[in-house]
Design a protein around this nucleic acid. Sequence first.
DNA 1: GATACTGTTGACACCGGTGTCAAGTTGACG
DNA 2: CGTCAACTTGACACCGGTGTCAACAGTATC
Lengths: 349, 349
Amino acid sequence: MSKVTINVVAKHAGVSKKTVSRVLNDEPNVSAATKEKVKAVFKELGYRPSPVARGLATNRSFLIGLVYDNPNKAYVSDIQNGALSVCNDKGYHLLINPIDHESDDLLLSIEKLWTESRLDGLVLTPPFSDMQPLIAMLDQLNADYVRVGATLFGEDIHAKIDEEPVRASHLSPCVISNDEQAAFEMTRYLISLGHDKIGFVKGHPDHPVTEQRYEGYLKALRAAGLIENPDYIVQGMFDFRSGEDCGRQLLSLDDRPTAIFASNDYMAAGILKVASQKGIAVPHELAVTGFDNAPIARHLWPSLTTVKQPIEEMAAAAIEQLLARSSDRLQMDSVLVVRESTAPFQSAS
Amino acid sequence: MSKVTINVVAKHAGVSKKTVSRVLNDEPNVSAATKEKVKAVFKELGYRPSPVARGLATNRSFLIGLVYDNPNKAYVSDIQNGALSVCNDKGYHLLINPIDHESDDLLLSIEKLWTESRLDGLVLTPPFSDMQPLIAMLDQLNADYVRVGATLFGEDIHAKIDEEPVRASHLSPCVISNDEQAAFEMTRYLISLGHDKIGFVKGHPDHPVTEQRYEGYLKALRAAGLIENPDYIVQGMFDFRSGEDCGRQLLSLDDRPTAIFASNDYMAAGILKVASQKGIAVPHELAVTGFDNAPIARHLWPSLTTVKQPIEEMAAAAIEQLLARSSDRLQMDSVLVVRESTAPFQSAS
DNA sequence: GATACTGTTGACACCGGTGTCAAGTTGACG
DNA sequence: CGTCAACTTGACACCGGTGTCAACAGTATC
C-alpha cells in the first residue's frame, strides 16, 4: 500500500536509483541484463514515476495550455479532443483556457497563465492566433507557443522589439487551414450545379477568415467568367440573427439569387429560416450553403451543405509541432460536405 | 531574467527560505515586520512559487480530473467552465477527460488516469456518476471524487467490499439537480396553457434521468386530475432521429396530442421537423417542449421552450465540495425557459 | 604488457518547495 | 530578578526524480 518510488524500485532491484532512472528514460549505456531486471521490478511493484518529481528535476510541468474564445462554439470540443489525443500519448496534460477575446485584461490573464502555471507550451486558436500584442508578449516572455488557424505570419505578426530583436530560432509554428481554397471550391460547386446568381453573406469584419472566405468566393466567380453583383454580397456578423437579416435582404431582391453561400452555418441557418417563412423551397428554389460544419448543420431541415475543416487533426498537429519544437507552417485541407440544402438550379416554372 | 526561486527571495530579504515559505502560506507566528518585508520582495522580484516543487513536497498535484461522456454534447462546455472557475480561484488545474461511456476499458483508463496523473480529485458526470463498478474501484483506490447529477446513493452505489468495508469518512459528495421536479413543472405549465392531450417522448432507457423526467410528467398529469394515455407515451433515444420517429408516431394518431413534451431538445427538434413536414403549425396547433436548453433550442424555428439545468453552477459546486472534502449531497434547482414553441391551447377551428 | 578508449554503474548534489525540531528572543508572572 | 511559556526564526532533512562526474570494468591499440 505504501508508495512505490524510485528508491523502492532501486533497492528491490539491487541497483542505484540513477540506473533505474536510466531505464525509465531509455538512456543508452545500460546493459541488457540490468535493464531487464529493473523492468521486471517495475511490473512487480506496479511502479509509476511521479510526473511532479520529474518535472521539478527537469524544470518542466508537462502542462500545455489551450487558449480559445469563450463563447460555446461547438468546434472547441474538436480542438480539445484533437489536442488531448496527442497530449495523452506523450505524457502531457492539457489545460483548457476559455477566454473572452474582447476581455480587457486578456494579455494579463494569459501572461499570468504562462508564468503562474509554468506551462511547457501554449496553443492559440482563433482569434488569438492573430493578435499582434499577444504574440509580442509571448515572444518577449520567450514562451513556446503554436498558432492554429492563423492568417498573419512573419514580420506582420512577430513584433520587432528594438532592444532585443526576435531571434530566428524563436519563430513559432503554425497550423492553418485554407479557407480561401475551400470557399473557392464551394462556390465552384454551386456554379457546377448551374447557379450563376450566387449570393454571399460575409462574416464578422473583425474576423480574419472573413476576408479569406470572401476572396475564395470572388475568385471562383471570376474563374467561371461570372461578374460579381454588389447586390448579392451582404455583410453578416457570424451569428444566427445577422443571417436572418441578410437572408431577408437577399431574398427581397426583385432578381433574387438562386443560391446563397453564407460564411458560416449559423448565418446559413438564419437564411433557411427566412426562406421557410417566405415559402421559398430549399434546395429546389434556393440552394443554401454554410461553412464550418457546425453540429446544427446536420440537424437543420433541410440539412446543410457546408465546409468541414479538419479541426481535430489541426489541433493534434499543433501539439505535435509544439512538442517537436518545430517552427514550420503546416497547411491542412478542408472538405466539402454535401447534404440536402443544395441542388441543381431549376429555372422558374 | 534568471529564475526567481524561494532561495533568491530569501537571500534578498535576508531571511531563511523557511520563513519565506511561511509567508507564502500565511502561516501564523511570523512577525508583521518580516511578513511585510518578504511580501515587498515578492513584488519587487515578481516571485511566483513553483506549483511543481510545492506539489512534490506536499504530495499533491493540484490537478483535478473531469470525466465526461465523449459525444460532443453542448453542456460539456458549461461543465468545464463551471469547474474551471473554481479551479482557477483555488490554484488547481482541470484535466478534461472525455471518455466513451461504452468503452470496454473504461475502468482501466480511469484507474490509469487516477494513478498515473496523481490527481487530487476526480469529478464524475453522467453517466459515469452512476456506474457502480467505477465507484467501487474508486473507493478501493481511496480516490477523492465527487459525482455530478447522480441518481443512486448510499449502499445502492457504494460497493460493500467484504475484506475492508467502506468507511463512513469515505463517502463521496454529490451535486444533483431535480429532473423530476423540473419535468413536473414543465408539464404543469403545459396544462396551465389549457392542454390536456400531452404527448411525452421518453429518453434513452439506459439513462437514469429518463425515468425521473417521465415520473415528473406522470405526477403532474395526475396532480391535475388527468389520466395518462398510453398512446401518447412513446420511447425515444435522446437523439434527433428518434425524435422524428416519435413525432411521426404521435402526430399520426387520429386523436393527436396538442402538446408534446420531449425528454430532451434534440428529440424536440425532430418533432418540430415532422410537424413542419406535416404542415402542423407550432405553437398554435401544437405546443412542443424539450429539456436541457441545448444551444439548438435557441436556433430552432420556432425557438424551443425547455428546461435549463444550472449545469455551470453544479460543476462549480462539485469542485468546491471536492476541495472541501465534504460528503454532502447538494441539490440545485432547474428553471423553465419559455420561448416560442409553446402557446395556449386553441380548439380546432 | 602498458595505454587508451568505450561501456556500465553509483555517489552525490540539485530542482524548489515543505515539515521537524531546536535555538534564540520576548514578555508575563511570581 | 529568575523562571517559564509563547512567539519567532533558521538549520536541515526530505519529497522523487535527473544531471554530473568519477570509478571501474572490459577491450582494442601499439
